[in-house]
């Protein structure tokens, strides 16, 4: 894992910090330099609530290198309540309990470890909503 490659993404990884387009008002995640909707520069940070619902999901039994210890794990497209779709793992849920439309909330969990001596990478995942606060 590239140290700098992951480090520079820490605020968005830990807590879903994206952007809002000053021009068209769209909320953007992942953050980028140009608004994908109106192609104007977009660089104002925006903190997403972390709430959304499952748009689609699948369960992985044959993982890429580095993810073996979590198998089987569920990955999903999550539709955030502010608009964007996000690709992320679901956690604290059995694969058969997942449904399209299920309300989920963001948590920060271990994404992977670079072996026993390497860095631990943390980032957003989603779990079934604990409660309606």
């Amino acid at each position: 894992m590239g140290i700098a490659q992951n480090w520079r993404l820490r605020s968005q990884r830990y807590g879903l910090v994206g952007e809002v387009c000053d021009d068209c008002g769209e909320k953007i995640f992942p953050p980028r330099d140009v608004c994908p909707y109106c192609t104007q520069p977009a660089q104002t940070p925006f903190q997403f609530s972390g709430r959304g619902e499952v748009f689609s999901h699948t369960t992985i039994y044959n993982p890429p290198t580095g993810y073996e210890e979590f198998v089987p794990y569920t990955v999903a497209l999550v539709k955030l309540e502010e608009g964007p779709l996000v690709t992320a793992q679901l956690t604290d849920v059995d694969p058969e309990e997942v449904n399209i439309g299920q309300p989920v909330e963001m948590v920060t969990r271990k994404i992977r470890e670079d072996g026993p001596e390497g860095l631990i990478m943390y980032g957003y995942k989603f779990r079934p909503r604990l409660q309606e606060v």
Binding site: P30, S56, H57, T58, I60, P64, Y73, Q89, I100
Partner: peptide
Amino acid sequence: ADYEVIHGISFVALNALLMRR
């Protein structure tokens, strides 16, 4: 790499997300 692969997604899984939907 930064927004799909890092989440442990495989290429089959991406297609599975499309197919499920």
